[in-house]
Design a protein around this nucleic acid. Sequence first.
DNA 1: AGGGAATACTTCGTGATATGATGTATTGCG
DNA 2: CGCAATACATCATATCACGAAGTATTCCCT
Lengths: 103, 103
Amino acid sequence: MDNQLKRGLLDVCVLAAIKNEDSYGYKIIKDVKPYVEMSESTLYTILKRLELANMLTVHTSEHGGRLRKYYHITNAGLGRLEDFREEWREVMSIWQFVTREDG
Amino acid sequence: MDNQLKRGLLDVCVLAAIKNEDSYGYKIIKDVKPYVEMSESTLYTILKRLELANMLTVHTSEHGGRLRKYYHITNAGLGRLEDFREEWREVMSIWQFVTREDG
DNA sequence: AGGGAATACTTCGTGATATGATGTATTGCG
DNA sequence: CGCAATACATCATATCACGAAGTATTCCCT
């Protein structure tokens, strides 16, 4: 799918992936894959960006003798998902303009 | 609205604006404005990109003693709009993932 | 025991892109 | 005469997705 269309969707996809329970990089990619293709470098870039924006927090935890970085959504992150629903109305209005049949 | 969400939408907005009749820069912006904000520099960047991709052709025509560049959509451009409808199914699937309530 | 696949995270460089700022020039109106 | 509107163009900048490459560990099969 068009790379540009994905922009603006990827961030909220990641937030949605950790919305209900904390998750970690590898799992996020697998959860999101059925919907959008996302490379590891892209994911970790996004995670860092979201952390800087206080949309999520990070805590390291041991699992099977190996360290994992778990990502936890913040209230700001949940708010971002709410805002996204609002923004979607505008997106749908654009969609209607693009796909309208008449002049 | 989130700038990122607009990307991928802007190109097809411009194509949609010239879909039914040839148009020119200033008019395209005015037609699109109710749906998406687009600056002039952005528009002309997009028009140039679409021309390079053979999505539209340009012809200069005089209007009121002044030259105007009219943009005409090509079959490839119309095809792009068709493809967009297909891509939209994927976008809606992503949307459902993001806004789903259950885990 | 050995080896490869899967898990897990990180950094770097690149190309694409939207946009503000800025500039140029003409028409129309008060 | 002056200003807003029309109309187009270029440049620098910041953001972003992604491939490539690297490091390390665990798990499973033979």
